[in-house]
Design a protein around this nucleic acid. Sequence first.
DNA 1: GAAATAGTGTCTATCAGACATTATGGC
DNA 2: GCCATAATGTCTGATAGACACTATTTC
Lengths: 248, 248
Amino acid sequence: MSTSTPDLEEAAFLRHYDPALYDRPSFSVDLVIFTAHEAQLQVLLVKRGEHPYKGWWALPGGFLDLHRDSTLEACAERKLLEKTGVKAPYLEQLRTYGSRDRDPRHWTATVAYFALIAAPAVHLGSGLDTVRWAPVCDRAVADLLAFDHATILADAIERLRAKLEYTHIAVHLLPEEFTLPQLQQVYEIILQQPLDKSSFRRRVAEADMLEPVARQSRNGSGRPAQFYRFRDYDRRTFFPRSISRNAR
Amino acid sequence: MSTSTPDLEEAAFLRHYDPALYDRPSFSVDLVIFTAHEAQLQVLLVKRGEHPYKGWWALPGGFLDLHRDSTLEACAERKLLEKTGVKAPYLEQLRTYGSRDRDPRHWTATVAYFALIAAPAVHLGSGLDTVRWAPVCDRAVADLLAFDHATILADAIERLRAKLEYTHIAVHLLPEEFTLPQLQQVYEIILQQPLDKSSFRRRVAEADMLEPVARQSRNGSGRPAQFYRFRDYDRRTFFPRSISRNAR
DNA sequence: GAAATAGTGTCTATCAGACATTATGGC
DNA sequence: GCCATAATGTCTGATAGACACTATTTC
């Protein structure tokens, strides 16, 4: 590997480089934080206290801290921790939204991440009237979202649904130990359609991603369910086929 | 819309994130421009004329022009037009890469797009030694890519391969009229494995996305192939199943 | 035992892959 | 006719969906 010019020249260039030469858009990071709770897929929203969109609900987020955040993902993790107290979530970049019009003040860009966390792991901040979980299907909520956050939320739901088909990510919406009926219910909540129990279990078994734990459910009537835990939170498990294409 | 008075904590939080208090990262748009040419998937590279990474090859891109570009996508389209003369490509946002380290100068973020264009449609700019097509499998090229562009390129290839499985996007790598053997060859080039002809044609036929045109190939020996054109460049066509999972 | 829920077994229509066969051009 | 390539036909193993069935708990 050869650079055609000596390092001294490069060093001199770097000393005289002026980053203010170019206009930069306002740049932020926003989070779509999902959880499954009370048979609904929910998203975390914060109420805006300042203009623009004062009093509207919005996705949590904010500006980079160039000193604290060494990467975009680190920034997203920091904001998630601040909002929910969750340290090691499932976190994935969704996409970046940038235009002159999405904020009335000026040209802005925001990189959106979506996170999946288990409801019991969350400790919301003090102000219950400024932070809340909202069911994603609630149109009344979506209509009150600031900026283009309704679009971002819709894109996140679409991505989540698509990924359910070929990955295991739904397990991140549940506590570490869970039953197969619970997992199936999460799938059904997100896909909004009932799934065949036998097919679902066959699919999960073939993916070989869960291991049973010595514990059974005690939730009233009926046969207790076996608890499982996700075998490897690092390894990527892929389902070979769609799960809902022709589901009834 | 009710704008309840934000509590003090919220107000402090928002003051903390006043954009004027923080530097914005340097923000650019980079393009991964693919074409299929000479039985290889190729990517457009430009040679950097300035530091840093002077003399290295890089993905084409640059800074937003807040006055001309009303959206991120418009910026990407403008840069593609400037580099290749192509006006209406297949263009899709890949993801955004941002960190303190990816550029030696300062904290930078770049939103990467990938484009698919037909090789004959391209008119490269004047300097042949500063703009070139490079086969994506050429490790010698990848090792000379500036910044984290090798990572971006790898991610783009991964996305392209994944999308081949369930969309029609490969048609955008070919001219408007093409034969099924040509289309199959594009798939085989990108997936790097032979596909069964019968299965491939059945799949394309069932997707119902091509219409025959009154033209046949005249390329020497063998039976001439029927030409087709993509039925609807706007409609999204999805394949119901994987095409290469168990291909031989 | 009844009710309720968890979990398993089995049948079948569908379909991707494999590969044989036919079709159509140039020479 | 021979070769090369395009295009079609057919068989089969795999499997997703459907649903009947068994298992285990509470009451």
